[in-house]
């Protein structure tokens, strides 16, 4: 006990340093966003001499970020909801139910995990174009769901494996159908995993540039990260404006994460008492 306590203090110091190192880039970006281009070229690291918000408004106004923000929100929430729904359904079936071909189906999902987007980018663009889905929101949502579903299925399957079969048996004895078990037992019990995989998926979708670029060629269908990326031209060296765009994209994610991580902590606590 006491030895553990001692080690706890020993690791606390490097962990605090690491925490500082993880916050630094964000502070650096915020600092740069407040500078003028001239100040930035002369000295990148010095503290800004004034809080200049005009870079932020330049970044916001130059490429219609408001519109892109809404696009991102729509696409990301839809994708995450669908991912969690399909992922938990498949995870439940693959972990707790016995049926012919389940291993093959699971391996099929896993294989999807090993397909990088670049590998299928061109054929997929053609399939989407043939299906009339290119440059539409459902098209991009579908691409995101397909991209991150293998990961989600894998995580949910692993997680649901840890739920004791007795719980499910008990629910079945109470007269629940398979769907009832899914809805009344698996979904609520899966909350911790659903939350963390949801956060990760939301982040992947939110930060994605490549898929959104390929699937959404029209300017007004763009997502926020694409808008931020397009702030940099071929050689553009207006780093403060770009840094402002980065902040615009990063801050909502941070806020959502900081809010949700309490939920995760609660979920973790709930999970460990139930387990």
């Amino acid at each position: 006990m006491s030895r553990i306590r001692l080690s706890r203090w020993l690791v606390a110091i490097p962990m605090a340093l690491l925490a500082l190192a993880t916050v630094y880039p964000l502070l650096f970006t915020a600092n740069v966003a407040m500078k003028t281009r001239r100040d930035y070229i002369l000295d990148r690291f010095s503290l800004t001499d004034a809080l200049r918000w005009e870079n932020i408004s330049t970044a916001w106004n130059s490429v219609g970020m408001g519109r892109y923000f809404v696009n991102s929100l729509l696409v990301v929430t839809s994708s995450v909801v669908l991912l969690l729904l399909f992922g938990s359904m498949a995870g439940f079936a693959l972990s707790q139910l016995r049926f012919r071909g389940s291993t093959a189906l699971f391996l099929g999902c896993l294989a999807g995990l090993f397909v990088p987007f670049q590998v299928i980018m061109v054929p997929l663009a053609r399939i989407m174009a043939d299906g009339g889905l290119i440059d539409t929101y459902p098209g991009l949502i579908l691409v995101y769901v397909a991209q991150f579903l293998p990961f989600t299925v894998f995580l949910m399957t692993s997680y649901y494996k840890t739920i004791p079969p007795e719980i499910i048996d008990a629910a079945r004895i109470d007269g629940n159908s398979v769907y009832g078990v899914y809805r009344r037992i698996m979904l609520p019990l899966g909350t911790p995993a659903l939350l963390s995989v949801g956060i990760l998926n939301a982040l992947f979708c939110w930060n994605d540039v490549l898929m959104a670029l390929v699937m959404m060629p029209s300017a007004d269908h763009r997502t926020l990260m694409v808008g931020v990326t397009s702030l940099r031209g071929q050689y553009s060296d207006d780093i403060p404006t770009f840094a402002s765009g980065v902040l615009i994209a990063a801050v909502p994610v941070l806020v959502v994460y900081l809010f949700l991580q309490r939920q995760i902590a609660d979920g973790v606590a709930a999970g460990s008492t139930k387990g």
Binding site: G87, A90, F92, L94, L105, I127
Partner: peptide, 13 residues
């Protein structure tokens, strides 16, 4: 339960 996931992964990946 597995169908949506499998369909999407097979067709789109």
């Amino acid at each position: 339960l597995v169908a949506p996931a499998i369909l999407i992964i097979v067709v789109m990946r």
